[in-house]
Design a protein around this nucleic acid. Structure first.
Lengths: 205, 205
DNA sequence: GCCACGTTTTGAATTGAATTCACAATCCTG
DNA sequence: CAGGATTGTGAATTCAATTCAAAACGTGGC
């Protein structure tokens, strides 16, 4: 019975199409101006079809996992829309984050095992939350146009890295570095970018 | 010419009324369910009157400075609504934050002068941004129901304090404390609450 | 090939809320 | 107290999300 499977595949492809078109629209007009009818039109399907895939607009936005993820995550986490979202989607979001939590926790545990991080105290997850919060908070501030400029901050992402270093230093994570040594930080950023992300990702944007 | 002034006063009082009723509604039904027509009705004025005071709903929400400030600030800073807001309101928001920036910068400078904080390196404002980001990020995560529970974090605000301590320790701000000494942290929280906030503010909520 | 039936897709109609604006009410001034 | 200016009103408009009855399509049996 291959028909059913083909159907399913086509359905998935259409969903993918919707998501891609949505992404395009979000990129050019912003999340706020995303309109279901325009999205449907641009994808060359009827609005109703869109609603076969997504329960609501929130739902549509929620599904995206992508380079623009940060922006969506911020919107999603914003209490207002968090509460507007169905419990299933929230669960989905939380579960989608699990692997990340795993990875980060693993890194923390490795560090502890190897003695880079003093034993006892914060659990791996507690530490991870701090990093997550710091990144999210910086992201939020960095995107509020004019805010950083107002307090004469240039290069907000480098600043974020400095704060991350300070935070981890505060937990005694070795090697300790100086959050004020800009040269060393730039070198570190460059190295991580090269060795971990294989140049694919420009952290400074 | 006292009439004009009375008028102005009455206008201001009405604005205050609108804001109070709005706050009530937000508290009972959430920010998302705030409806202009219901607000007008509850305040016993016409919708049009509401619009004499506020250009839009965003505008109304923006104006509030209050214990629920965090929630509103989060919504405000969320890129999506930040961009939807008029440039004037944004400017207003930024200016309203200036005194806070001043205060925090002052504290940082005092610390540097007294030798508690090593000289050089991050500017006071850069340091302040880190604290702001960390608080905002924690706030965001803490309010996303289920998220903290999912990764077995209890007492997210205490955790936030631990991370703040770690961050400042990382910058070498004396006295250095151990972000893992929970007893000391609780004592510190209690002390700050007592001496600075005069018990008026329950930080643990 | 063609019909009947279930399934999928459609988009016009509905709904719900923000915002506007022509008119009404009120206030002020000479 | 007339009448022009200012302020307040809420029905009407607008705009976008969501629904749902009907059309189009696919499938298996004859």
């Amino acid at each position: 019975m291959g028909t059913k499977e083909r159907r399913q595949r086509e359905f998935n492809e259409r969903e993918e199409l919707f998501l891609n078109v949505a992404l395009e629209l979000v990129r050019s007009n912003g999340l706020l101006n995303l309109q279901m009818s325009r999205l449907a039109e641009k994808a060359e399907y009827a609005v109703g079809t869109l609603y076969l895939h997504f329960d609501s607009k929130e739902d549509l936005v929620f599904v995206r996992r992508h380079p623009d993820y940060f922006r969506v995550a911020q919107y999603t986490l914003c209490e207002v829309s968090w509460k507007a979202t169905s419990a299933e989607r929230r669960q989905h979001f939380l579960e989608a984050n699990d692997p990340l939590v795993e990875i980060v926790s693993g890194i923390v545990e490795d560090a502890r095992r190897s003695g880079d991080l003093p034993p006892g105290g914060a659990t791996a997850q507690e530490l991870a939350v701090g990093v997550w919060a710091l990144c999210g908070g910086h992201q939020q501030l960095a995107h509020a146009e004019g805010l950083m400029a107002d307090i004469t901050i240039t290069d907000p992402y480098r600043l974020m890295c400095r704060h991350l270093i300070a935070l981890l230093d505060g937990f005694g994570w070795k090697p300790l570095s100086d959050p004020n040594d800009l040269g060393a930080i730039d070198a570190l950023i460059a190295r991580v970018q090269r060795e971990v992300f294989n140049e694919e990702c420009d952290v400074t944007r």
